[in-house]
Write a protein that binds this DNA or RNA. Structure first.
Lengths: 229, 229
DNA sequence: AGGGAACATTGACCCAAATCAAGTTTTTAT
DNA sequence: ATAAAAACTTGATTTGGGTCAATGTTCCCT
């Protein structure tokens, strides 16, 4: 059997979350937070939508995190090696957002957040953590939108993301001003201006959107969503 | 003059960081945290390496965040609209990592972290925030590595990132095992397997790296670094 | 209000990397 | 040990989107 308070002797002490605790606090951690669990190659650490109130510290081995799109295609968002702490983008939702699968036999420590939250966290801290976690999720989404997608998909996703933002903040979802230039949009999406321009023109011809200078109108939301798929 | 405690009446109350505070705590915030500042179009909110111990809440308007690479080329990493809170990736370094420029006349509230940290944060909280902020920075880097770069640059950056990780954790920087398949690397970098395979072959022929199955040896670090630049 | 600059659009052409194809090597499971 | 599967490599061909070029439009600024 392992030493039940092995955090004190762990090689990851300096980076692991419990490191911020004084030793009396370490005892507050659940027993499960202190004993590493072995995951064999190709076994799943967590899956999307699975309730998650923990982080995982990789003591040895490695994992890949990935999503599966509507056509069943895997898209890897990150690799993590020994010494990494994973699962941070799940804090905001309280549920995993990706699959996480061992690439080889690996040992991971589960770090339950609940105890930490209850004992130490103030309202501000939680708010900030939520924000950071949410932002991490958004960054992942943007990455997914740029890697392995066509120029048309990128532009369509971009328009939807802006539309979603405005909707979330009480503005019209279907008509708004794009404050950035086409050049900036192209740069952000990793495309040439000319390509963005051509796609706006094509989307207009298809009747999906309309533009008057910087004002953009979404004319056919289902069609736009279908482009993203 | 504005109401000095207008956080209480702000439309962003539900999302803004001070929202986690009870009203007595709001008074602890610096005066500057409660009064929005106007940024005209094309003016800079912050620049890389500038010491930063604040977040910014966008009350109105919009900004773009971007980096400038060694050749002077701008790469936009994010856009932010009214209702967003920005600057989270700076927490880990205590300094800005990107430029942030107003796209139109915008009002931003500065939220100083120092007071919040001093009053409310425990060691764990800080650790977690550091981790999340650092991860956010890494995600940005990976994004920068995939957008607007050639296949060779992506693979070279990937190898360097793995090398850096091992070095950080006390392993050899120049010889290590890649635990993931070429297919996984390709997927992660948004490339075809064949392209990754060809680039590994080419890097071997150039004498930059060597591979024996999954063991990778970096033979010429300066050359590898030069490929990324 | 008008002239210049920045921004946007459209067309012609080209190339980096995808796809298709076929074979080789390594891993895994029995 | 061995066969099947998975992973990797190399070559030939195709293509999405980049680059170059030219023109049109909008936004400033005085």
């Amino acid at each position: 059997m392992r030493n039940p308070i092995q955090c004190n002797h762990c090689s990851m002490q300096s980076i692991c979350v419990p490191a911020g605790l004084v030793s009396s606090d370490v005892e507050l951690l659940d027993k499960s937070s202190r004993e590493p669990h072995v995951y064999n190659k190709r076994t799943m650490v967590y899956s999307p939508d699975q309730p998650m109130h923990s982080l995982f510290a990789i003591k040895s081995g490695s994992v890949k995190c990935y999503t599966i799109d509507s056509e069943g295609k895997q898209q890897i968002t990150s690799f993590h090696l020994a010494g990494d702490i994973i699962g941070m983008e799940s804090i905001a939702r309280g549920a995993a957002v990706t699959y996480c699968e061992a690439l080889e036999t690996s040992m991971l420590c589960e770090i339950k957040l609940s105890r930490l939250f209850a004992q130490n966290f103030t309202g501000v801290d939680k708010n900030l953590l939520q924000l950071l976690s949410k932002r991490l999720g958004q960054r992942n989404s943007h990455y997914l939108n740029v890697v392995n997608t066509t120029a048309e998909q990128r532009v369509a996703s971009f328009i939807m993301a802006i539309s979603d933002h405005f909707a979330e903040h009480g503005f019209s979802r279907s008509e708004f001003r794009l404050p950035m230039t086409r050049t900036d949009i192209a740069n952000y999406l990793g495309l040439a201006v000319e390509t963005v321009s051509r796609i706006f023109t094509s989307l207009k011809q298809q009747g999906v959107i309309d533009t008057q200078q910087s004002i953009l109108t979404i004319k056919n939301t289902p069609a736009l969503e279908k482009l993203i798929a």
